[in-house]
Amino acid sequence: MADTLTNHVSARGLRAPRFSLRQREAIEAWLFVSPTVVGFLLFFLGPLVAVVYFSLTEWNLLTQQSTFVGIDNYVDALSRNPDFWHVLRNSFVFALGLVPLNMSLALMLALALSRPFRGVVFFRTIFFAPVVTSAVAWAIVWKFLLQGEAGAVNQLLAVVGIDGPNWLREPDWAMVAVIVTRVIKMVGLNMILYIAALQAIPRDYEAAARLEGASNWQIFRMVIWPLLAPTTLVIFVITMIGSFKVFDHIYLMTGGGPENGTLVLAFYIYEQGFKFFNVGYASALAMIMFVIVLALTVVQMILRRRDMQ
């Protein structure tokens, strides 16, 4: 075996290696993660630090200069500017309207579609279709459908004798409209997560409960719902955070109106930052949004930990 490969590598290997195997692995690993780390520092961590700084300054559009103003922007938001509380209220109304509607519909659809029957794929495909559709397209079409008297929705309602409101022109109805259309757009995602969770529950539990004479409702209430709790928690937080982020949907359907009736936090940040160039104020708003999202995440982690114990 004069031609063994190993003979010539061994000749090469006689030279003492520069790094130990452990060191080499660490160097390689950092090379592997380097694009992610650089991007993360540049486009996420850096900006996150910057937004804290920005929120403590005031930006002069003309001179392109910023001056340090301390917590002025926060004081502005929390006490001086009446818009802020209105916007925050809108954001919470939106979230508190959307989350329960979304989750209960998702759960009901999942319960109906987690067992095989004819048409299950058909219905799943339909309910999930809006998820893959662009939010912009979805908002445009619904805005079209929800126009005053000429809109298709009101025309349909007229057929059954209901005189529909001018959905997007009345503040309260506009909020209802954006919530409901957003739920239709996104419910498929939660439905799929619930279906996956339901299918992971061993059928024996249900069979055992049924043998003990439990009704369908009792089985759901006492067996299935408790077993779904971890999934429900995750879905709750994802959906809640998602509802605070909602921007394109509202931008296109109502533009925040009417009478700022659908002006929510994400939209307000955009408006203050990029329309009025109140960079400092918008950054303070961004920080407030960050804190809300962070609080939700922490709550989730605490609940999840308690769940495990």
Binding site: K245, M289, F290
Partner: peptide, 17 residues
């Protein structure tokens, strides 16, 4: 931690960047 933060939070500094 980055998973949880919406892009609206960092969009302003990113604009300047």
């Amino acid at each position: 931690s980055a998973l949880m933060v919406p892009e609206e939070v960092t969009i302003i500094p990113n604009f300047f960047l």
